[in-house]
Write a protein that binds this DNA or RNA. Structure first.
Lengths: 104, 104
DNA sequence: AAAATGCGAAACCGAAAGGTTGCATTTATA
DNA sequence: TATAAATGCAACCTTTCGGTTTCGCATTTT
């Protein structure tokens, strides 16, 4: 299926799942209670998130606990880096402008 | 069509367009030269990026220059904030561990 | 041992995505 | 003024997406 991390976070349900898992590891059933779709639909989302290595599984008896793989989230931040440079520069320019006005 | 910014950056071509525009404003034709798809396909991507307010248009004669709307990119960073707190905490824990080992 | 629970996988479906071709419109040029 | 260039839009097609229902398989509970 070859999905990447950006496709993974494109879906609002998956983003919400990631936020849930940021707080604590959860089972598919527990996660599904937070949404209006079926457990199976959530399961599909978890499969995608697992493939992208955004979440981990740990089986305990018949339950599977999913937890956030925080390191993978950094990849988004790394992509953003190239734009951060720009908005920081823009901020500095504004900063400079304000300072100039102030000293008039 | 109601797309959000996360859907906008889900497509690799659109991400590449954003990177191109980060360097300089460009026309659809110029942008399309960088990809294997038709100008019309690129035009569709630009339409989506415009709807999401990730890019601006400026018409000059018969040409339209597209430029990056950097402020909108910050929204992704803002969403990431909630996860950053986690990975910074993890880093600090590791940091502490390393310090402990060092002082042994 | 039988029933219930937790889960994933498969089959199916409608909607949306991403691409192409063909056109209409506006602006520049010969 | 006729032609070329730059662009957006619409129609169409194939693939993917996200959902549901049905099922099978472990594991736990009664």
């Amino acid at each position: 299926m070859r999905r990447d991390i950006f496709q993974a976070i494109a879906d609002p349900t998956r983003r919400a799942i990631l936020v849930l898992l940021a707080a604590q590891a959860m089972t598919p059933n527990a996660i599904a209670e937070n949404f209006n779709s079926t457990r199976q639909a959530v399961s599909k989302h978890l499969r995608i998130l697992t493939e992208c290595e955004l979440v981990n599984q740990e089986q305990i008896g018949r339950e599977i606990y999913y937890s956030l793989e925080i390191d993978k989230m950094k990849e988004i931040d790394e992509w953003l880096e190239q734009f951060k440079k720009i908005w920081e520069t823009k901020f500095n320019q504004l900063d400079h402008l304000l300072a100039t006005i102030k000293n008039k």
